[in-house]
Structure formats: structure tokens, C-alpha cells
């Protein structure tokens, strides 16, 4: 009975939304997009929003990677919210997995190949993660993938050494400092230029590492934050071990 209802509902949702999306063209040229309208100055622009980003993005933000320019600069406030969401997840998991009387679980050692291999790889993975988030404004990637790569290095350690335990205090301090960096960068923008999250540093030469103003700074903070948060989530979920 319940299954039949679920099938009917699923088919209904499929049909209703498919009918809506049939009307939406796929893969059309950007020149057919509608032009945007600025509600504050009451002016209609002569191009669409994505065209504006692609045409003026480099001058507006100094970043080569337009997705990064949007994520960190044009819509940086969303990213601040996103970082907060991840922070909330790590805080929430930490509070739900908190145990008052710590009963330690027995765990088995893994074998020598895994242990040595993970020791060998750990540094390289961290380095790769750092590379990804430092170059976020130039190449595909950025703070979130970079942070996830760093967390995967820690995950490897958890697999190889079942007794391994990242210090929660240290993780939460690095989380906090990275989050505070983001907010403080935003507030400095507010003080200097009157806009929260304003890109107040010089843009430099495009395609160079030190370019795009505050974007690399924010992405480094995000990378550190995401790395420590995902590690903290994994650590909380593993529980207390011996």
C-alpha cells in the first residue's frame, strides 16, 4: 500500500517537473539569455548576468577562474554561509557524538604495508591539498576540494592507525581561527570601502599566484577550515577507541 503510494507520488513528481523542464531549452547560446535588471538604479543592462561575469569578471575581481570569482567575490556572502553550514555540521556531529563516560573500544592493528604506505603518502596528500586551495583563483579547485583532500590524508591515518586520535581542541582552534579570518577580512572591507567582503587588496597581474586580492587569502582560510572540520566530523563519528 505504502509502496504503491510512493510509486504514484514519484511518477507524479517526475511528470510534473518533466513538463516544466521540457519548456527550458538545453545548451543554448548565451546570447539568447535574458538581460538583467538592476533594481537599485532601475536600469536594464545590455547583457545577461553570466555574460557580464565572463566579460568583466577579470577586471572586477582579478581572478582567472570565473567560478572562483563568483564563489569567493561576487557571491562571497553565500560562501560565508556555506562555511558556516559546514562549521555547524562539525559542531552538531561533535555535540551528538559526545560521550560523558568514555568506554574505550578495542580495535585491531592494521598491517605493516598500510601503516608504512600511509606514513609515506600523508605529507604528499597534505601538500597536494594545499596546492589545490592556494591556486583556487587560477585553476579548477579551491578551498572546498583542497580541504577535502587534506581531510582525506587524515582519513588515511585513521585507517592505518586505528588508535590515531586527532586532538579536538587543536582542530576547533584551527577551525575558529580560519572562520575568524574570513569574517575579519569581510569586516575590514566594510571599514575600508563600506562594503562587507570588499576585495580591498590590489589585484596584481592575472594568472600570477599573488593576484585577485583577497581571494587566495579567503580560499586558504576555507581550505584550512574545511580540512579541520571534515577531520573533526570523521573523528567524532569514529568515537573513542583504544
Amino acid at each position: 500500500m505504502k509502496k504503491a503510494l510512493a510509486i504514484v507520488l514519484a511518477i507524479l513528481i517526475f511528470i510534473v517537473f518533466a513538463l516544466a523542464f521540457v519548456k527550458i531549452p538545453f545548451g543554448e547560446k548565451m546570447s539568447t539569455y535574458p538581460h538583467y535588471y538592476n533594481p537599485i538604479t532601475n536600469q536594464t543592462s545590455n547583457m545577461s548576468l553570466p555574460q557580464h561575469y565572463l566579460t568583466y569578471g577579470k577586471n572586477d575581481t582579478g581572478a582567472t577562474n570565473m567560478v572562483t570569482a563568483i564563489v569567493v567575490d561576487y557571491r562571497g556572502f553565500d560562501t560565508l554561509g556555506e562555511v558556516t553550514v559546514l562549521f555547524l555540521a562539525s559542531t552538531g556531529v561533535g555535540s551528538l557524538m559526545y560521550v560523558e563516560n568514555k568506554v574505550k573500544k578495542k580495535v585491531r592493528r592494521s598491517n605493516a604495508v598500510v601503516e608504512t604506505g600511509s606514513k609515506l603518502l600523508f605529507g604528499f596528500i597534505i601538500l597536494f591539498g594545499a596546492y589545490i586551495f592556494i591556486h583556487g583563483h587560477l585553476t579548477p579547485g579551491g578551498g572546498f576540494p583542497g580541504g577535502a583532500v587534506i581531510a582525506s590524508a587524515f582519513l588515511l591515518l585513521y585507517l592505518a592507525y586505528p588508535k590515531f586520535h586527532a586532538k579536538h581542541e587543536k582542530l576547533s582552534v584551527s577551525e575558529s581561527i580560519a572562520g575568524l579570518t574570513f569574517v575579519i577580512v569581510g569586516l575590514i572591507g566594510l571599514i575600508i570601502a563600506g562594503y562587507f567582503l570588499y576585495n580591498f587588496l590590489p589585484f596584481g597581474l592575472p594568472t600570477y599566484l599573488f593576484s585577485a586580492g583577497v581571494i587566495p587569502l579567503i580560499y586558504v582560510a576555507i581550505g584550512v577550515k574545511v580540512g579541520s572540520e571534515l577531520t573533526a566530523i570523521v573523528d567524532s563519528m569514529m568515537g573513542v577507541r583504544e
Binding site: K58, M66, V67
Partner: peptide, 24 residues
């Protein structure tokens, strides 16, 4: 992909940025 050192035309960068947020 909308990265300047690859010759265009580029896809719409906004959905990619939004989905990055949605995935997280």
C-alpha cells in the same frame, strides 16, 4: 569551463558556483 586561459566560448559559471555551495 569558464577559466580565462582556455579559449572560449564558456558555459554559464553561476550554476557551477551555486552547486558548489549546494554540494557542501
Amino acid at each position: 569551463a569558464p577559466i580565462e586561459n582556455v579559449p572560449g566560448p564558456y558555459v554559464d559559471p553561476i550554476p557551477q558556483a551555486l552547486v558548489l555551495t549546494a554540494i557542501v
